[in-house]
């Protein structure tokens, strides 16, 4: 065991894959000389050189489109889009190109690439640097979507994402980068599509993603004091989705709250809720409850931002509403 920051865990995973496979390279804005806006790629430029750790102009289409072309022709790109908000500038390259190649060209192509991007708010960066757009990409057949909540998960999932032969969208919450925790020694991949029960409980299932896993665990502690024993399940990958683990938990607790940082309108949490309603309706004792951001852009000033984004007390209240 060793204790590392979330950002270091991702870096260690990328470094390990770069050491083991000369086809792996990093590409993005400010990732080389300065080591990335959140420091994820720090040190890689010095170790692997400018050929394999590529600083780019501010050209999101080129970053993703070039990565997709390189992936088709023998390389394995790990691209960084600084904030998932900027991913929209490259939406054509992700959605119409990378996600579609294998299918529309008849199955003869492989697109082994990772697009990493910071997601979520909490740093007073306002409307264009704080969104949670994961549902946008979960909607697209051809993409896999990963959203870890701990350093250990980030490490193992990044290794699997780089080794995957499909385009993988890798979401990293801005406020998790500086969270540290133990990670196992070595570089064991965590397969995509396997959820993790972060806390066992018997009274209610909380399905949460990203930073909301941490908030849900905090909420579970408060709820325990009031005699409610919540189980917290982190799907870790939004597609492929491990429904089995989530449903097993539901069958036990018969109640569910889904907690994500997205605006609730058209959210991944709505997809999760509808899956549960379709497949597990008979197992539920109470209505499905969702906690998310308000349906507004993310505001700047701290009091407004805190109000708009889901907080621990919102989760506690949501859970109590079905008891």
């Amino acid at each position: 065991m060793r204790n590392v920051f979330f950002s270091e865990a991702i870096r260690d995973a990328i470094r390990n894959e770069m050491l083991n496979d000369p086809r792996v390279f990093c590409i993005g804005e400010d990732i080389g000389r300065v080591g990335g806006s959140f420091g994820v790629t720090a040190g890689l430029y010095k170790e692997f050189g400018e050929e394999r750790v590529r600083d780019t102009p501010i050209s999101e289409q080129a970053i993703v489109g070039l990565s997709a072309g390189a992936a088709l022709t023998g390389m394995i790109p790990v691209a960084e889009i600084m904030y998932n908000d900027f991913m929209l500038c490259a939406a054509d390259q992700i959605i119409n190109q990378a996600a579609k190649f294998r299918y529309m060209y008849g199955g003869g192509m492989k697109v082994p690439m990772v697009v990493r991007m910071a997601v979520g708010g909490g740093l007073q960066c306002a409307a264009q640097h704080s969104q949670s757009l994961e549902a946008f990409l979960v909607h697209i057949p051809g993409l896999k979507v990963v959203y870890p909540s701990t350093p250990a998960d980030a490490l193992g999932l990044m290794i699997s994402s780089i080794r995957d032969e499909n385009p993988v969208m890798f979401f990293e919450h801005q406020l998790l980068y500086q969270v540290s925790d133990n990670v196992p020694d070595g570089f064991e991949p965590i397969p995509l599509g396997i959820a993790d029960v972060k806390k066992e409980g018997s009274d209610i299932t909380i399905v949460a993603t990203g930073l909301c896993v941490k908030k849900s665990l905090d909420a579970a502690e408060l709820l325990a004091k009031e005699g409610i024993n919540a189980e917290v399940v982190d799907p870790r990958t939004l597609y492929p989705l491990d429904k089995e683990t989530i449903y097993r938990s539901l069958a036990k607790t018969r109640k569910v709250v889904i907690v994500t940082e997205e605006v609730k309108r058209g959210a991944w949490s709505a997809e999760m809720a509808s899956n549960i309603a379709e497949d597990m309706f008979e197992s539920l004792d109470k209505k499905i409850v969702r906690v998310g951001a308000l349906n507004t852009p993310v505001p700047f000033t701290v009091s407004l931002e805190e109000y708009v984004l889901p907080q621990v007390n919102n989760i506690v209240d949501a859970v109590k509403s079905v008891f």
Binding site: R23, F25, E51, Q61, A62, V64, G65, L66, S67, A68, G69, A70, A71, L72, T73, G74, M75, D92, Q93, N96, Q97
Partner: peptide
């Protein structure tokens, strides 16, 4: 315009490999 960046990717692979 879909081919432009893809073409750069293929050129990039050729250069790297």
């Amino acid at each position: 315009g879909g081919g432009f960046n893809l073409a750069c990717g293929a050129g990039f692979s050729s250069k790297m490999l």
